[in-house]
Amino acid sequence: MRVTTRSGGGGCVMTYHQFLREREKIDYLIEQGYYMKSVKENLSGSFVEFEKEDSLSETRDIQTLHITNADARKYFSSLLIRQLRKHHE
């Protein structure tokens, strides 16, 4: 079925794409072996600090993501709970 949009839905498309972009960044760091080290929240949203330890070179790399999207904040929070549970296992 071929459809054409007459109108509507302007505002939220941006929000969903913003979620996808932020989720992608989170997933990328997790895939690279980073874990969430700290979260600072203020009027601008969440600043999630990711850390990756290199045991060979004994260095630590820190990346900070500014998460502004509400669904992305839920997303990293769910991953954080999973991370903490794994840590305690």
Binding site: M1, R2, V3, T4, T5, R6, S7, G8, G9, G10, G11, C12, T15
Partner: peptide
């Protein structure tokens, strides 16, 4: 559109 999250679209079928 006016009071929530603008996620309903008016479409035209074939």
């Amino acid at each position: 559109e006016d009071a929530s999250h603008q996620c309903i679209e008016r479409l035209v079928d074939e």
